[in-house]
Design a protein around this nucleic acid. Structure first.
Length: 110
DNA sequence: CTGATGACGGCGC
DNA sequence: TGCGCCGCCATCA
């Protein structure tokens, strides 16, 4: 895929998602300094497919898994999430009302 | 240049 | 809470 400084920051943001935590496309974009580029995040994931990215920790803002429930990718993402102790209820996970937990971890106050 | 598309979001009802 | 509609952005035919 085409690696621009933007896609770099996006991948960095995704790699920063802690084990057992999830994050929305939009949040990733925002954290990468690209507000409104949620769709760009989606493309980066789609095109980097087999990189060492925790792609399964990225979902829609609604907490819904982004794939069709009958797709293989959906099943795979489900497995991986549950493997990290995340409960997946009818295609969606409980998204934190605020992402302060994540911010706290990322901001790593010293 | 124009219109369609998609691992998306937000607002209204 | 759930849906639908519309807005956004980057590509592509």
């Amino acid at each position: 895929m085409k690696v621009t400084p933007e896609t770099q920051r996006i991948m960095m943001a995704i790699r920063a998602i802690p084990h057992g935590q999830v994050c929305a496309y939009g949040q990733i974009a925002a954290r990468a300094g690209l507000p409104g580029r949620a769709r760009l995040v989606a493309r980066v994931l789609a095109e980097s497919s087999d990189l060492n990215l925790p792609w399964h920790r990225v979902l829609r803002a609604s907490g819904q898994i982004a794939f069709a429930q009958d797709s293989e990718m959906y099943a795979e993402q489900c497995r991986r999430l549950r493997a990290e102790g995340i409960e997946v209820k009818s295609g969606r996970v409980r998204m934190p009302k605020t992402d302060l937990d994540l911010d706290a971890l990322l901001w790593a106050p010293k």
